[in-house]
């Protein structure tokens, strides 16, 4: 019964949406069937857009992972680096991405690289901060245990800190993947030319031509993308830490 609850909610929302759409003109609120229809008609463009936005999100995640995980490891090794740079990483987090995107267009020109950068920027901080917290999460006795047997810094990192950090880092990725999709789409709003086509571009262009059903279809596609990325992180969590984390 409790497993069915989320589906029940989805069904109710769909019903409510459908009922409400009957009272409104399509250009304001298309119904579920109209959105499906628009999605089917534009399936090639939507599919290609989904793929390109996915590439920008994943590329951004990869860049942010490199800098975030590498940065957290350096912070651990050299604490003065952390004191020097962490405040700015935190500050960067507070600058709205929508304000940065036009600057990126100036620097990078129109195209997918803007989306790649905005995706990387928005998901960088959760990765850095979760890795930073995770790497210093071993207890004092765990650290002393390794110290007692003469473990080197690298041994302590590999045998203790990295595995210990996994639950925290993966929790960070749970929010980072959703943010990367948001970042990519914001980048596409501002910087995409429509060639190659992307979800952000589809949302903007269809809403400008009052094709609200296609806008909805593109929004749904981006939700599907975020959902797939999120589910992937959950699957990795189950595989990597499920056997030992959260039991005691």
């Amino acid at each position: 019964m409790s497993r069915a609850l989320p589906f029940l909610v989805a069904l109710l929302v769909l019903l409510a949406w459908w009922a409400l759409s009957l009272t409104q003109p399509e250009i304001l609120l298309p119904g579920p069937m109209q959105v499906l229809e628009a999605g089917w008609t534009g399936r090639v463009r939507l599919g290609t857009g989904l793929l390109n936005t996915a590439l920008s999100s994943l590329g951004g995640l990869a860049i942010a992972s490199g800098i975030g995980l590498g940065g957290a490891t350096l912070f651990l090794r050299f604490s003065w680096l952390e004191r020097a740079f962490y405040p700015y990483a935190l500050f960067m987090q507070t600058v709205p991405i929508i304000a940065i995107a036009p600057v990126l267009v100036v620097w990078l020109g129109y195209g997918a690289s803007v989306a790649l950068c905005t995706a990387a920027i928005v998901c960088f901080f959760p990765i850095l901060s979760s890795a930073n917290a995770g790497l210093s999460s071993p207890s004092r006795s765990e650290v002393e245990l390794l110290q007692l047997y003469g473990a080197s810094w690298t041994q302590t990192l590999i045998k203790l800190r990295l595995p210990r950090a996994l639950p925290t880092v993966l929790a960070g990725y749970r929010s980072a993947v959703g943010l990367s999709v948001i970042g990519a789409i914001v980048g596409e709003f501002v910087g995409a030319t429509g060639d190659p086509v992307s979800l952000g571009y589809l949302v903007i262009s269809s809403s400008r031509s009052a094709d609200t059903a296609t806008t909805f279809a593109a929004v749904c596609a981006s939700a599907v993308l975020a959902g797939i990325l999120f589910a992937t992180v959950r699957a990795i969590e189950g595989w990597a830490i499920g056997a030992w984390h959260g039991h005691s």
Partner: peptide, 28 residues
């Protein structure tokens, strides 16, 4: 050689018992 036993077992939860016990050897 010396050994330290802490108040808590301090076993690494991702390692099996034998991997935990082998850790001091592994480190050298």
């Amino acid at each position: 050689e010396q050994a330290f036993v802490f108040q808590k077992p301090t076993l690494l939860p991702w390692r099996t018992l034998q991997e935990n016990v082998a850790l001091p050897l592994e480190l050298v």
